[in-house]
Design a protein around this nucleic acid. Sequence first.
DNA 1: ATGACTAACCTTGTTAGA
Length: 259
Amino acid sequence: MRIATWNVNSVGARLPRLLAWLETAAPDVLCLQELKCTTEAFPLAEVSALGYEVAAYGLGRWNGVAILSKVGIENVQRGLTDEPTYEDAVESRAIGATCGGVRVWSVYVPNGRDVEHDHYAYKLRWLEALRGTVVAESNDEPFAVLGDFNIAPSDEDVWDIGKFAESTHVTEPERKALAMLRDAGLTDVIPRPLKYDRPFTYWDYRALAFPNNNGMRIDLVYANGKFASAVTDAYVDRNERKGKGASDHAPVVVDLTGA
DNA sequence: ATGACTAACCTTGTTAGA
């Protein structure tokens, strides 16, 4: 089984590339983030035509997540258990479903903006709710949280840690939240890069970040033991970051034995 | 070639992204 995650930065703007990628990479399950549309506006007909069932969750012009599956999609849950709000509003940042016997969550962790910003405190509260959901759901069946975590797990996961003083994405409390997920039994499934030495998944649109490989590894696959032990390969499809009309994130693809 | 941000929309600026 092939399971992937991709922050598409608008499913509407990315639709031609998304459809082409679904045909060539042919994942059985794809977790999407940053739909930037409502559930109703998701391009259901186009994606369904390729043989996917869809569970989408979008509440407005920002964020939005979805799970696409060719192997069934059951027990869909929109939102985390006890998920916090931001400025008293619920945001569409997490959706869970069971696909072909694998429980998956597609998550778009809040950015945080600045360490001093309310959004950063919200990010940490949100990660605590994610931990709670993981503890409640992960068991002896394959389980994984996939998505844009907006956290670089280590200094090696950004192109130059010296550029990140006072920045979000690399702070100790954010990394502690990831450590808590590992303490809850999850493993960071680190993909291989298709080029260069480190498996970055995001490159800013500005300042020639992609050609200079000034990237970050922030799109992560956190898997329980049953899932992680079935992994045969994992890679970042950096080719999807090339050319016109690319998202600023590349897909992360994981292959599992069985089914 | 991988090329100097992109996307939605409250659209001729603002908000967000990281």
